[in-house]
Design a protein around this nucleic acid. Structure first.
Lengths: 158, 158
DNA sequence: CCGAGATCGTTGAGATTGTCAATCGTTTCC
DNA sequence: GGAAACGATTGACAATCTCAACGATCTCGG
């Protein structure tokens, strides 16, 4: 039925071990690994009143680069309207400020306050520990390799 | 402020190149790569009236393993109630059947119909081509390495 | 200079998805 | 035999995604 069901058929499918249909599919593994990582991250960051999303925004606003909301949206692959909500929330908690971009009066530059920077630093530590838990099965070298390979997928050049 | 801002500070941060705060964070790269992959997959599968989710379910029901809904939920990391919706949808289109599990009358075994198997095969080809697009920057070896590393994260043993 | 078209942030609506509690029939296990 | 656990389902609610529209600004050709 399927034109080329599986080139490597000689490996013996090991019937009944695991639903093999997807378990070598890169997209699926990406989705499942991300789901696990995201759940762990959200659980850990809840201690700081953050989720993965708001943490990402907060962390980016501590960056030198002074991102605009549009840049945040693009980098995080979010709709601009979602960035509005995220920044609204962080701003209402005094962690972040909207500053008019002197070079473009349409744009807002989002920058972390002193309090925001403190929360970001603490959350960063928490996140680091949570990741250690999730990625602990990998050696340092493997993690490095994985990071580089994922960067290619996450930021395609061409 | 941050206790250990960055061990590797000698690499020169390249100011202004890219919002560097997250771009070496494994969880973030995972999320972004997945978002891209998912978007491409959904777009491609739309030609078959499927999304990544329903495609995954359909494909698993073509497997020898005859998964129950509970097993589908666990494998795909979904709430059991979401599996109900997904199977409802596929069943209403005649692609999938619910069969009582002879070994456990509480459970349903979900199995693809002949039509479902045909759609799955076609969709699989489409998905393969879409992935080629997304992962095309990687060599075959790199893809293999990435798959193995992701499998460790996606299916933690301990 | 000016005006058409594009861009940035914002609002709001509607669809999709995620999360959770409650229930029914069944199974497990003491 | 009966209590507790489990699989599927339903329903309600929150969170997220996706789009269209709009005002204020910028860009750029004429």
């Amino acid at each position: 039925m399927a034109l080329m069901p599986k080139p490597a058929d000689a490996v013996a499918p090991k019937p009944g071990s695991r639903p093999s249909a997807l378990s070598d599919d890169l997209s699926f593994l990406l989705a499942r690994a991300n789901a696990i990582s995201l759940a762990a991250g959200n659980a850990a960051l809840a201690a700081h009143g953050l989720k993965a999303r708001s943490y990402s925004v907060l962390l980016l606003t501590t960056d030198e680069a002074r991102p605009s909301q549009r840049e945040l949206a693009e980098f995080l692959r979010l709709d601009p309207s979602q960035v509005v909500s995220l920044v609204d929330d962080l701003q209402s908690r005094g962690l972040v400020e909207r500053r008019p971009d002197p070079a473009d009066r349409r744009a807002n530059v989002v920058v972390a306050t002193e309090a925001g920077r403190a929360v970001a630093a603490a959350a960063r530590e928490t996140a680091r520990r949570a990741e250690e838990q999730v990625h602990g099965q990998l050696t340092r070298d493997e993690r490095q390799t994985l990071t580089e390979l994922l960067r290619v997928l996450a930021f395609p050049e061409a």
